[in-house]
Amino acid sequence: MIFGVTGAALVALGLYGLVTQPALLRKILAFNLLGGGVFLLFGVVARRGAVADPVPQALVITGLVVAFAATALALVLVLRLFQITGAATIAEDKTPP
């Protein structure tokens, strides 16, 4: 149960970071924090029975691999944006280059 609350707290923290951090790199970090919290909620639910339920655990492993691929793609997009425009955020009101 402690870890259930931990997972909920991580989701809240990650969501806050995702909303308030302007830099894209930090948004990606926050998104991964959020993802870790969601996976943890899965893990806690899987642990509730007498024996650990392998189905949610397998889903989390699948999720971790997909999250890694998504992070890699997001970072390459951020780097490409930076190379082309020199921007580290996606703020709308910045002066055109």
């Binding site: 259930g4 909920a8 923290l13 509730r48």
Partner: peptide, 25 residues
């Protein structure tokens, strides 16, 4: 708002149905 989301999740986690559904067996 994020605190509310976290709180909602925490409340949900503390009030999960009993007995826990499991596909382990």
């Amino acid at each position: 708002l994020c605190g509310v989301v976290g709180l909602g999740l925490a409340v949900a986690m503390l009030n999960l149905p009993d007995p826990a559904p499991s596909l382990a067996a």
